[in-house]
Nucleic acid binder design. Structure first.
Length: 205
DNA sequence: GAGTAGATACTAAGATCGAT
DNA sequence: ATCGATCTTAGTATCTACTC
C-alpha cells in the first residue's frame, strides 16, 4: 500500500473517494476470502489429476499394469517415476549418430519413391537429385539436436540451424564439400528398412 | 527503473474422514 | 489406533500491471 494514498485526501471529495476505495478494497478482500478455498481446491484437483495421469503412464512402463497396483500412494507413484527415469539407459552418442543417419536414409528412400510418381521432374533429374543427396549422407557426422554442444564462439550450437553440407564455390554453383562415392545406390521403390526398427530410429521430420 | 497493489501460487499446520 | 488423503485456513512468495 502506498503511504501517500490517503494523505492527500484532505478535501471532502478526497474523503468520499477514500471511503469508496476502502469499501472497494474490503469487497475485494472478501471476494478473495471466498475464492481462496475454491482456488486451493482447484489446485489440489490439478495435482491429483496429474498424479493419476502419471500413474496410468508409469505402471505399464514398469510392467506393473495390474489391478493389484490400482491403489497406490502418491509417494509411491512419484518414487516409481523417479526410479524409472533414473534407470533409463543413456543413449551413447554414436548410437544417436547412427540413428540420425538411418533417419536420413529413410527420408531419402521416401523421396526416391515419391519423386518419380510426382512428375515434378524428369527421370534423369530425379536420379541426379537422389544421387546427390545420397552423396551428402557421409557428411552427416554431427547430431543436430545433441545437447551440451557449444560452438567455439560460445553460442549454443544445438540452437543453431544444422550446418550446410554444401559449400558454394566462387562461381555460385554448388559443389560438394567432400564428394565421396556413394556407398550403395538407392533406386526408386527400394525397401531396405527393417520393419521392427522403423519406429525406433530418429527421423529429421 | 523503482516502488506499489493486486492476483495468483505455494507452503505448512491442524482438523476430519475413511480404510485397514 | 494408525495411516493416508483431503479439506480448510493463514501466512508467505512470486508475478504482473501500473504509476511516478
Amino acid at each position: 500500500m502506498s503511504p501517500h494514498l490517503y494523505e492527500s485526501n484532505t478535501t471532502e471529495h478526497g474523503q468520499v473517494s477514500a471511503q469508496l476505495n476502502k469499501s472497494k478494497r474490503k469487497e475485494a478482500s472478501e471476494l478473495r476470502k471466498t475464492l481462496k478455498p475454491l482456488m486451493e481446491k482447484r489446485r489440489r484437483a490439478r495435482i491429483n489429476d496429474s498424479l493419476n495421469q502419471l500413474k496410468t503412464l508409469i505402471l505399464p512402463l514398469i510392467g506393473k499394469d495390474s489391478p493389484r497396483y490400482s491403489k497406490l500412494e502418491k509417494a509411491d507413484i512419484l518414487e516409481m517415476t523417479v526410479r524409472f527415469l533414473q534407470d533409463l539407459p543413456k543413449t551413447p552418442l554414436y548410437d544417436r549418430l547412427d540413428s540420425y543417419r538411418e533417419g536420413y536414409r529413410a527420408c531419402l528412400l521416401q523421396l526416391a519413391n515419391l519423386l518419380p510418381s510426382s512428375k515434378l521432374m524428369g527421370t534423369e533429374a530425379c536420379d541426379r537429385l537422389t544421387d546427390y543427396l545420397e552423396r551428402c549422407m557421409p557428411l552427416v557426422s554431427y547430431y543436430p539436436y545433441s545437447h551440451n554442444t557449444r560452438s567455439p564462439t560460445g553460442t549454443d550450437a544445438s540452437r543453431e540451424r544444422p550446418r550446410t553440407l554444401i559449400q558454394l564455390n566462387p562461381t555460385g554453383s554448388s559443389a560438394l564439400h567432400r564428394p565421396s562415392p556413394p556407398s550403395h545406390s538407392l533406386r526408386p521403390n527400394q525397401q531396405i528398412i527393417p520393419a521392427d526398427r522403423e519406429n525406433s530410429i530418429w527421423r529429421p521430420w
